[in-house]
Amino acid sequence: MTTNHRARRWAATGAGLALAVSLAACGGNVGGGGSDAEGEEFPGGDPITMFVGQDPGGSTDLIARAAAEILSDELGVAVTVENKPGANGALAAQELAGEEPDGHTLMVYNGSLAYITPLASEDAPDIADFDIVTGLSLDDYVLVTAPDSGFSTVEDLAAAGRPITFGTTGVGTGSQLSQELLFAQADIDATAVPFDGGSPTLTAVLGGQVDVGSIQLGEAIEQIGAGELTPIVTFAEERPSYLPDTPTAVEAGYDVPVQQSRAVFAPKGVPDDVMQTLRDAFQTAFEDEGYQQFNEDNLLTPNELDGEEIRENWTENLEKYRAVVEEYSIDLGGE
């Protein structure tokens, strides 16, 4: 258990607790070398922990696990994924901010937490409090409807002659923002019905409980392929290669690009040489064929930008969204 004395500050709070921590940590520290990293070259044989602010099994979790695997291969130390779900990832981010900035604790951070959640909630974390290692990939939202709804374009929705109901995957998500922006710009009278994640939203659209819904492409592609769902528009900047025949909202005349983006974060103050090692390791690791196949299988568009570019992009996004949300007086939080 020598590897654990450093890893958790609160391990000393009680015997039972310490046992619990050691047990959990032992589960992952397969390659733990045993010595402290101080004075040695990073990573110095010590394992890396990667936080995920979402439940196991979700798309963020899958991406984190794929990234952890290639990073582990590249650096030669164990990279353990630790799920700390809660508050759209804010809980994990809060915990990350309190960790040592030694490169041994990282987190897969969702773009929506950086540029959408702040529009709905005041206590969202600020990305200025973190160092950003690298971008990972982009996930697209697609507006879908059930075939028997009779809708196939945004014009159809505008011409429905009645208020539209739209399912979102939750408050403060890209799913909500994308549709609010679209319907506001198209001047369609529409009511948001928030569901608890992608799968329930998909079910509601399939069953005709709501007229349309905006869902991440990877979650809807199977039903789109089987003809059980009709894609209306995607909210990507350019047509995603996985859905070449569906226009983007921009093409349809509405300025609403909304994408989910993911990046690797670290606590603020990581030494330059450690950061460089991590960035280099990721850039080499991204070449891994298995990882590229993973992106393709999950309909993810690689977005392996440098950390600082990610910061610029995300900050820009937040400002842009804040401006349009104000312009159309959309309230993501309120009723």
Partner: peptide
């Protein structure tokens, strides 16, 4: 889940969900 408002969380992120 509909308004994002906090209920009985006492500002504790552990209770946010």
């Amino acid at each position: 889940a509909f308004t994002g408002g906090e209920r009985f969380t006492f500002g504790n992120l552990n209770l946010a969900d």
